[in-house]
């Protein structure tokens, strides 16, 4: 995050129930720790029931709109492959797309009414043709190995933290603030695993 060190648009895309809301809260806390303004926009209600969900996170010295317009996303954190494909067009040239290997088939696919495209991470890598950094990872496995599949959101934040160049301590303290005592160690461990993945990708 060089030219955009002080201004950053992050789109968290997933399926209802995957923890994008909590991830948005953590990123909002990070921005505040860094003395930045932040706006985190969420979707609640009906679309949460297993539908596509997005959380917009914007941080900069002064944020206007809470929404990120198409083509203005600096970091797309896709918690699920198909959602990565769905939101890829919103990524700006030079942006970073982190895509989790998890596949959650929409009902339209399970009942045979639609097809889930094969090999989405490779498709994204090829189509980006160097105009975006694509990082594919099995975040769900990393999360499970570090305590619980539910910490996928923190793994994804770990990858972002490493790529963004923002101070790591801001993330560590935000995670401590957002989670209750008994979940802290597990989430710190998931964050560290994501961070390592992001650093070496």
């Amino acid at each position: 995050m060089t030219s955009s060190l002080l201004s950053c648009n992050i789109l968290l895309a997933g399926v209802g129930g995957q923890g994008t809301l909590v991830a948005g809260r953590i990123l909002g806390e990070v921005a505040l720790t860094l003395g930045l303004d932040a706006k985190v926009s969420e979707v609640h209600g009906m679309s949460q029931r297993g539908g596509s969900v997005v959380t917009y996170v914007r941080m900069s010295p002064s944020v206007g709109s809470p929404l990120i317009d198409e083509g203005e996303v600096d970091y797309l954190l896709a918690f699920e492959q198909l959602e990565g494909l769905r939101w890829a067009p919103s990524l700006v040239q030079g942006g970073t797309l982190v895509v989790n290997a998890l596949m959650i088939r929409p009902l339209t696919v399970s009942i045979g009414a639609a097809t889930y495209p094969e090999g989405i991470p490779d498709l994204l890598e090829r189509a980006a043709a160097g105009r975006a950094k694509v990082i594919a990872l099995d975040g769900s496995a990393l999360a499970a190995a570090n305590g619980s599949p539910k910490s996928l959101n923190v793994v994804m934040i770990g990858v972002f933290a490493a790529r963004s160049g923002l101070p790591k301590e801001a993330f560590v303290s935000a995670i401590d603030r957002v989670f209750p005592e008994k979940l802290r160690a597990m989430n710190q461990s998931a964050f560290a695993a994501g961070f390592e993945k992001g650093r070496t990708a």
Binding site: G51, L91, V92, P106, T108
Partner: peptide, 15 residues
């Protein structure tokens, strides 16, 4: 400019 050229990706089935 966007990272992905229009039409460079298959359409994602709705969820």
């Amino acid at each position: 400019p966007a990272a992905f050229a229009p039409g460079s990706l298959p359409e994602a089935p709705v969820r």
